[in-house]
Design a protein around this nucleic acid. Structure first.
Length: 613
RNA sequence: GCCAGCAUAGCACAGUUGGUAGUGCAGCCGCCUUGUAAGCGGCAGGUCGUCAGUUCGAGUCUGACUGCUGGCUCCA
């Protein structure tokens, strides 16, 4: 058992107090587990009665009472037989604790903790007294499967947070409110970056003009890097023959998470005439006897076919194909989330076909690509995960020795990053291991962005070859990579990363010209025309408002640069710069001088240097 | 998909124990012609998510559905 920090001990103790309170109010509740989490704690209960919001308040009040009672947390070690006896004698422990006890390996200490009337099988440690939990708040009720397995019973989980002092709790709740202000769903609405319309479909993103600028700029940015790395840009269709995906192994294996295939009406009519039912259709689809088309859930098979459309010599390798490929996946409705989890999204996808000797170099280049992105955008807070196969699971295809080679290739390449890397079993794709870059959103949830995957399997399934120097056919290795991951998710995270305050090169509107009065609007329009000739995204605020109101509007809309033009400026041929992105630009200067200072921010994709509160 | 909560104008919200909807911002129209984060006045805008039910009467109560939010499971 990993050692706990003092705050984790406190939270773990709060979980016990939660269970104590629940049992006082609901004596029938059965206990599963109650660990400390990143910010707080939870406890899982099995109970006929469904907890309500009012229950939560009562439970919280009872917890505070328990804190006042100043119960002592007492630990005592027991033998396995004694443990079994204690569990069977305690109704609340009788349902799940025998299983939890069985998890404790032979020879390891078995401990119980007691506070007041409450008893729990628990490795601890705890704080000494319940009174040390000075600030606690229950946040929500959720369903959670026993042992995290969908096939098991769903329990009721109560989440809460706990702190050593009220001030810290207040601070936490305040920070939570602040974090919600930069939530990409909120900012997306306020800054008109994207919308999702129920009548179009759940999880299907409509990119507004503003959001589209950001997406387009990102595509241009990565496109330049891809060109440097020797990629070829390709385009492929949005649907493909079902058999293509049968060959790749995606169908019917991932059928549940794909949109229903498009089936030819004649086939349906013929089968209907035979009296077939819907269930029959489904079976025939899975068996491969029905033809049809699938909205593509991924781009790989298309790139594979592009590669296979011509013979290749070892001299041409690596072949690097890139595409902004839009894919569609039927994600469970409860999983959808703003831009970060959607049903239709565009990957900055690419596939490299190379020799085994080239794997290391190519994977490293892919990682460099991700690095360039994260550095350019100032995203320092990410973690790197090497996703390996879970040897227990049967979802992985391909030979063991290939898996080993691929996994070693990923390990070796990830090691060159010079940042901590976590290896995780069961995180691999079904065709190969991968290196993922995970970034947290404003609420602390981790999202996979960039990914690099080594794949020995698809080349085999599609019988891909190249001609070696000895004039014999060889099998290439495929590397799948998407440095952004998906543009939707990336932009979602990016909105939160910048809190909507995009650097100039990404800002949907880069410059707003603010004429001091209506008489200066025409002149302001001329200034905008000059800027737009240089592809600078500029507009005029034509409202008949006071300057203060126009500035307020531009500030709220997070336009990085404002040009104030009054009679003085017009006469002298100047503009007065107010900039939220870079204070060094501020002051009066000629339009040309402003442009000369602005263009490097755009061309060099600089980050903002200043932010106004 | 599962558990819980939520659903009132474009947006942010009010709406007391059931008596057929209000405020601010945005929008439109006027007046003001403005100097670094909100000038003034007027107008318009809602089958209160949808469909049933209870009731003389439902935004308020009940049920189902849809969607959203937080979790769980999943994530090629």
């Amino acid at each position: 058992m990993a050692t706990m920090t003092p705050i984790q001990e406190l939270r773990h103790s709060a979980a016990h107090m939660l269970a104590t309170a629940v049992l006082r109010l609901f004596p029938d509740a059965k206990l599963d587990i109650g660990p400390a989490t990143d910010n707080g704690f939870y406890y899982d209960f099995d109970l006929e009665h469904k907890f309500t919001a009012e229950d939560l308040e009562k439970i919280e009040a009872e917890m505070k009472k328990i804190a006042k009672e100043n119960q002592k947390f007492e630990c005592f070690e027991v033998s396995r037989e004694e443990a079994e006896k204690l569990i069977s004698e305690t109704p609340a422990l009788s349902e799940f604790k025998p299983g939890r006890l069985a998890d404790i390996p032979e020879g390891e200490k078995i401990t119980f903790y007691r506070n007041g009337e409450f008893l729990d099988l628990c490795a601890g440690p705890h704080v000494r007294y319940t009174s040390q939990v000075k600030a606690v708040k229950l946040l929500s009720i959720a369903g959670a499967y026993h042992r995290g397995d969908e096939k098991n019973k769903q329990l009721q989980r109560i989440y809460g947070v706990a702190f050593p002092s009220k001030a810290e709790l207040e601070e936490y709740l305040h920070n939570l409110e602040e974090a919600k202000k930069r939530d990409h769903r909120k900012l997306g609405k306020e800054l008109k970056l994207f919308t999702i319309d129920d009548s179009v479909g759940q999880g299907l993103v409509l990119w507004t003009p503003n959001g589209s600028v950001i997406r387009q700029e990102l595509q241009t940015f990565i496109g330049e890097e891809l060109f440097r790395q020797g990629y070829s840009q390709v385009f492929t269709p949005n649907i493909g023959n079902l058999n293509l995906f049968r060959t790749s192994g995606h169908f019917p294996y991932y059928r549940e998470s794909q949109f229903t295939p498009v089936i030819d009406q004649e086939q349906i009519d013929a089968l209907a005439a035979e009296g077939k039912t819907c269930a029959d259709f489904s079976d025939l689809l899975n068996a491969g006897t029905l033809d049809g088309f699938l909205l593509k859930p991924m781009n790989c098979p298309f790139h594979v076919k592009l590669y296979a459309s011509q013979p290749h010599s070892y001299r041409e390798l690596p072949v690097r194909l890139a595409e902004f490929g839009t894919v569609y996946r039927w994600e469970q409705s409860g999983e959808l989330n703003g831009l970060t989890r959607v049903r239709g999204f565009t990957q900055d996808d690419g596939h490299i076909f190379c020799t085994e000797d080239q794997i290391h170099q190519e994977v490293c280049s892919c990682l460099e690509l991700v690095n360039i992105i994260l550095t350019t955008l100032g995203m320092k807070d990410y973690s790197v995960r090497v996703g390996l196969r879970d040897p227990e699971s049967d979802k992985y295809i391909g030979k063991d020795e290939n898996w080993e080679r691929a996994e070693n290739a990923c390990r070796a390449a990830a090691a060159t990053l010079g940042v901590p890397v976590v290896e995780e079993k069961g995180e691999a794709a079904f065709y190969g291991p991968k290196i993922d870059f995970v970034v947290k959103d404003t609420l602390g949830r981790g999202w996979q962005l960039g990914t690099v995957q080594v794949d020995f399997n698809l080349p085999e399934r599609f019988d891909l070859t190249y001609t070696g120097s000895d004039n014999t056919p060889r099998r290439p290795v495929m590397i799948h990579r998407a440095p952004f991951g998906s543009l939707e998710r990336f932009v979602g995270i990016l909105i939160e990363h910048f809190a909507g305050d995009f650097p100039t090169w990404l800002a949907p509107e880069q410059v707003r010209v603010l004429p001091l009065n209506d008489g200066l609007v025409d002149h302001a329009k001329n200034v905008v025309a000059e800027l737009r000739k240089l592809r600078i995204r500029a507009t005029v605020d034509e409202h008949s408002d006071k300057l203060g109101a126009k500035i307020r509007r531009a500030e709220l809309e997070k336009v990085p640069h404002m040009l104030v033009i009054g009679a003085k400026e017009m006469e002298a041929g100047l503009v007065n710069v107010r900039s939220r992105a870079d204070k060094s630009l501020e002051g009066s200067c000629t339009l040309q001088e402003f442009i000369d200072k602005l263009m490097p921010l755009i061309r060099e994709r600089r980050l903002n240097t200043t932010m106004r509160g």
